[in-house]
Amino acid sequence: MTLTISPQARDALSHWLDAQSALKGAAQNTLTAYRTDVAEFIAFLTHHHAEPQGLAPLARITVQDMRSWMAHLRGQEIAPRSIARKLSAVKSFYRWLAEREGFEPTAVLSARAPKFQKKLPRPLSQDAARAMIDTVELQSTTGWQGARDAAVVTLLYGCGLRISEALGLKGRDLPLGQTLRIVGKGGKERIVPVLPVARRAVEAYLTLCPHPMSPDEALFRGARGGALNPRHIAKVTEQARMQLGLPATATPHAMRHSFATHLLSAGGDLREIQELLGHASLSTTQAYTSVDQVHLMKVYEACHPKA
């Protein structure tokens, strides 16, 4: 379906995204997803009503319009989780638009997201996490690039960083001390401990890196000296997990999951782990307790004499 959006709707969408960025500190990836989801929704309404959807038509949205849109999404075989994400973006946009334009957004806000089974994180075992770091380093024929990739993945596992947070480090963050200040989602700051193994990995990379390091430039560089693209880390991680025979869930983000799960298994406090991960809600961190319980049940079933 061609994205047909009226100038008024396009301006409103742009102003809403600006507000999300300025007031809530939404990350760029989040803003891009919001833009796509809401633009597709408005384009659907344009096609559905066969007329441009300016601000007045958007304000006249009905419950039937919402049902038709969600039926359209289901007809495209979009996963319930993705439908829920799109609906959340549309609701957020309509709350802002309704307050600005003075209409009642009940038809949108009353729409219910489809139920879906939340996927639990898939952590690696401790041995697999260590093997992943070692094997990632071997994916490049250039020594400094291999050391760079190992340093990035070590930070994901050793500090529980998101890939965007690791690649967002600058020269000004050097030298790495015992702690590191991270600005995560929504501009939320947190302090994470840096293990000696992570410091050594970064120092090994810096020793070999051919590009000069200045305070405002990215710590991790691509081959030509620009900021390293996260797709590269995803690629070398995929290559490494295939060599190791690990499942497709062994992604860069799985290293962060593994960090949290292994801390929990070692007796870490759930709220402290929440702070280390930068989760806004404890419920997000609590997913790891389910993972740990699954692991405990497997051990129990394997070892109990009457299992």
Rank of each mutant, 00 (worst) to 15 (best):
L3A: 15
A9T: 01
A12G: 02
L13R: 08
W16I: 07
L17D: 00
S21M: 10
T30I: 06
A33R: 02
A43W: 06
L45K: 04
H48Q: 15
A50S: 15
P52E: 12
R60T: 13
T62G: 04
D65M: 03
M70N: 09
A71M: 05
H72A: 12
L73E: 07
R74N: 09
G75K: 11
E77N: 15
A79H: 02
I83D: 02
S88G: 02
A89H: 08
K91S: 09
F93T: 04
Y94V: 01
R95I: 00
R95M: 01
W96L: 08
A98Q: 06
A98S: 09
E101K: 14
P105Q: 01
T106N: 12
A107W: 14
A111G: 11
F116R: 09
K118H: 11
S125N: 03
Q126M: 14
A128M: 05
A129V: 09
A129Y: 06
R130Q: 09
M132D: 12
M132C: 03
T141K: 08
T142N: 05
G146A: 06
R148F: 04
V152G: 09
L156V: 09
L156C: 12
Y157M: 10
C159M: 13
S164E: 08
G168R: 05
R181A: 15
R181D: 15
V183P: 03
E189W: 13
R190G: 03
P196K: 03
P196D: 05
E203H: 05
E203Q: 11
E203P: 12
L206K: 04
C209T: 07
L219I: 02
F220S: 03
F220Y: 00
F220C: 05
A223N: 11
A227Q: 10
L228K: 00
L228C: 01
P230V: 06
R231F: 12
R231H: 07
A240H: 12
H253S: 07
R256E: 10
H257L: 09
S258C: 04
S258K: 11
F259I: 10
L264Y: 05
G267L: 10
L270V: 09
L277E: 03
L282A: 03
S283M: 08
A287V: 10
Q293W: 11
K298T: 12
H304K: 11
K306L: 15
